[in-house]
Write a protein that binds this DNA or RNA. Structure first.
Length: 427
RNA sequence: GUGACUGUAGCUCAAUUGGUUAGAGCACCGGACUGUGGCUCCGGGGGUUGCGGGUUCAAUUCCCGUCAGUCACCCCA
């Protein structure tokens, strides 16, 4: 029992890798159906790529070091800066809107806890260069279809959608002073986890009047109509119209059960960093896990990172929480090993005979194993069974002399005598 | 980075008030079964009881430290 993996890092034994591949496979398949194409970038980047926009304080959250050439570098904590750079470098040459996805391994130097490691794989899906809300709808539709690809239903997962502009307008309309908006955002972000009294106290401390405080605390319950009523004829009217079209588009894309999948929830804040419009998060309905996926519109980010000035929408979906949910709902397929054929030898047949047959089967694309050392037939069949072989071909010297062999179907033990050449040819 | 709780075989767990050589099930390897797997029976390997120190005649057990894990903060992906 020597050194294990570093804290927050994972070993992927064949079983775990099979689960990971299952998740990646579904991600790629759904992304492909929506016409997204896969890209990737380097896992190690210049530290400045991350500090330029986020400031030096982000360094505490990064795996960073000085390389042997004296360069300050960091393992990537997110994909968007890399994406911005790649798009920026060829902005004029790329067909718009750009529909790209990636499955980067991301790193973060933070104390680990459930669903949150120091390393994870995250599906990133982005549409760049399309300001219309159709792109927002397309994006959430991908995320929901990915849930469906895992056999998750709207009784398992719900998308909560909000719009930072609506939230801001609503807060102003109900009497939150301009200067208190950031504090109000922070409280709203934590409403679910913090006792109501504590939240109220914080709002009071931020200088928000009592009447407005009550409205802020009820933000999670505010309906789209409530928001419309509060906003009146303010300039936010257009945003409201846009949001209603968004929901219409979702009904068209997701289907009749779109209402079950999507819930308006103004309290979704999403770190409030660079999002400029509609934002969403996917949660397990039982509320036992962290967010499965989060994303939204970030129209200014690419320009501020020094790339092209293009509007964008995107989301990230990590493999850790998603994997937990899939396992919790018993939707993770078992990763039993399965080979096509086991080649066994009996009597005076030799390992060399098994090798020759195995080679011919393998050349025809079959997955084939045989005993690497001499074993009794019973032992070989046991190994064949453990390896998940569908069938075992039993070679014996006398049969081989006639060009024959016995093929045993492992499921029920039924055996038939075959002409070896013909049998290999039909495989 | 802060706090609370928890660390015994690959996994799930035992081990009397501190008391011989730390056990069991599952898993793994082998035998019973010299040409037939799954079942059964038998056997085997595998532990510095996370690590280090302390108290004691004696520590898996009590104390301290440390590392790791879980959870909650912080923060976010």
């Amino acid at each position: 029992m020597s050194l294990g993996p570093l804290p927050g890092f994972r070993d992927f034994y064949p079983n775990e890798l099979a689960e990971r591949s299952f998740i990646f496979g579904a991600w790629r398949e759904v992304a492909r159906r929506y016409g997204f194409v896969e890209y990737d970038g380097p896992p190690l980047e210049a530290l400045e790529l991350y500090t330029r926009k986020s400031g030096e304080e982000i360094v505490g959250q990064l795996y960073n070091f000085t390389d042997k050439g004296g360069r300050e570098v960091a393992l990537r904590p997110e994909m968007t800066p890399t994406l911005a750079r790649m798009v920026g470098a060829r902005a004029n040459a790329l067909r718009k809107p750009i529909r790209w996805f990636a499955i980067p391994q991301l790193f973060r130097y933070e104390r680990q806890q459930r669903g949150r490691l120091r390393e994870h794989f995250q599906l990133n899906v982005d549409i760049i260069g399309e300001p219309s809300v159709t792109a927002d709808a397309e994006l959430l539709a991908v995320a929901i279809d990915i849930m469906r690809a895992f056999q998750l239903r709207s009784s398992d997962v719900v998308a909560r959608v909000s719009d930072r502009r609506l939230l801001e307008g609503y807060l102003r309309a109900v009497g939150v002073p301009e200067a208190s908006l950031p504090a109000a955002f922070a409280v709203i972000d934590k409403l679910e986890r913090v006792p109501r009294a504590v939240s109220e106290e914080k709002l009071a401390g931020a200088g928000i009047p009592a009447e407005a405080r009550a409205r802020v605390l009820d933000v999670p319950c505010a309906t789209l109509d409530d928001v419309a009523a509060a906003l009146g004829d303010a300039p936010h009217r257009a945003v409201l119209e846009e949001f209603r079209r968004y929901l219409d588009y979702l009904r068209a894309l997701v289907g009749d059960d779109a209402e079950q999948w999507v819930r308006f929830d103004l309290s979704i804040v999403r770190g409030l960093a660079y999002y400029t419009g509609i934002v969403f998060e996917l949660f397990d309905v039982k509320g036992e896990l962290r967010a499965i996926c989060g994303g939204g519109r970030y129209d200014n980010l690419l320009a501020s990172l020094g790339g092209a000035d293009l509007p964008a929408v995107g989301f990230g979906m990590g493999d850790v929480v998603l994997g937990e949910l899939i396992r919790a709902r018993s939707l993770m397929p078992s990763a039993a090993p399965a080979i096509d054929t086991w080649v066994a030898v009996a009597d005076d047949a030799s390992t060399t005979d098994a090798m020759r047959v195995a080679a011919r089967l393998r050349a025809r694309g079959r997955s084939v194993e045989y005993a690497l050392r001499e074993q009794k037939l019973a032992r070989q069949l046991k190994a064949a069974s453990a390896a998940g072989a569908r069938e075992t071909v039993i070679l014996a010297g006398a049969d081989l002399a006639r060009g024959e062999a016995v093929v045993r179907r492992m499921a029920d033990g039924e055996e038939r005598r075959v002409n070896l050449d013909a049998w290999i040819a039909e495989g």
